[in-house]
Each structure stands twice: as C-alpha cells, then as structure tokens.
Simulated assay, not measured.
Amino acid sequence: MENFTDKGKTSALVAYMTIIGSVIAIFMNQDENKSEFGSFHIRQALGLFISFFLLGYFVGYANSWTATSAFYLFYFILWIYGFVGALQMQKREIPLIGHFFQNLFKSL
C-alpha cells in the first residue's frame, strides 16, 4: 500500500459527498496542497456524478420502475466502491468507467 497523506484522504472523501463536494475537493487539492491520491478520487467521483446526471436524465424518461431502480442500484454500488476505496487509502478505479474518467479529467 502506498503512503498517502491525510490531506489527500480528506479531499478524496469530500469528493464523494455530492457534486458540490467534488467541486470543493478540487479547490482543496490545489497547488501546494496537491495530492495524487486526492486527484485520483476527485476524478473518479466527479465522473461518477456527471455520468449519473447525464444518464439519469434519459433513464427517467423510461417511465419504468424496474429500469429506474436498477439504475439507482448500479450507481449506488459504484459510489460505495469508490468511497470505500478512498476510506481504505487505495487507488482502485471504478469498474467499467473508472479508466475513462481518469483520462477525461487528467488535468485535475
């Protein structure tokens, strides 16, 4: 296990607390306070929230209890996976879409 600072862990955990938490974590992880661990989880959380809103917009039009429930359950499991990784100080990409988020938000 790599040795990460507590400041990186704090910004990583804040990133998973809603989309506003992701924006706050971006500002927490600036310049002299920049942590690779924090940046990794900020990219994961921000991508997860943005994709949730984009895909959720279309799933909402399905007007199906089954489709909507499956969508929420799927994203809740991905959120738990990322949040637990941040708690355990591990850099694990979110399955299926984590690598895409790392490439898309590599400037953060």
Rank of each mutant, 00 (worst) to 15 (best):
Q30G: 00
Y72T: 12
L73E: 13
F76W: 14
M28L: 08
G85A: 05
A86H: 05
Y16M: 09
I94F: 04
A45N: 02
Q44A: 09
A12V: 06
L48P: 02
I42M: 00
I26S: 05
K7F: 15
F27T: 03
F105I: 03
P95Q: 08
T18G: 10
S51C: 06
K91Y: 00
W65E: 05
V84A: 15
L13D: 05
T66W: 15
F100C: 12
F105P: 01
M1N: 15
A86W: 03
K34T: 13
Y81V: 13
S51W: 03
I77Q: 00
V14R: 02
F58T: 04
F100T: 12
V84E: 14
T68H: 00
Q30I: 08
F100E: 11
W65S: 04
G21E: 03
F53P: 08
L78T: 07
M1I: 14
H41K: 09
E2Q: 12
F83Q: 04
L55N: 04
S51L: 02
F71P: 05
A12M: 08
A15I: 07
F53H: 13
G98W: 11
A15K: 00
I50L: 13
F71H: 05
V84T: 14
D31W: 05
F83S: 04
G38C: 13
A67K: 09
L46K: 12
A45P: 07
S11L: 06
Y72R: 10
S35F: 11
I97Y: 01
N103H: 09
M1L: 12
N63R: 15
T66A: 15
A67R: 07
S11I: 01
G85K: 03
N33G: 11
Y57L: 12
D6M: 05
T68P: 04
Q30V: 02
M89Q: 12
F71Y: 08
I97L: 08
F53N: 12
W65D: 01
Y72E: 09
V59G: 02
L104G: 01
A70D: 13
F27E: 10
Y75D: 03
G85T: 04
D6C: 07
N29K: 02
L54N: 06
Y16W: 15
F100D: 07
E32N: 08
W79S: 08
A62L: 07
F37L: 00
M28A: 06
I97G: 00
F40L: 10
I26C: 07
G47L: 01
A25I: 04
S35Q: 13
I19T: 06
G82Q: 14
T5S: 15
I26E: 02
K106Q: 14
E2V: 12
Q88N: 15
H41Q: 11
E93I: 11
F74R: 03
G60T: 01
I20A: 11
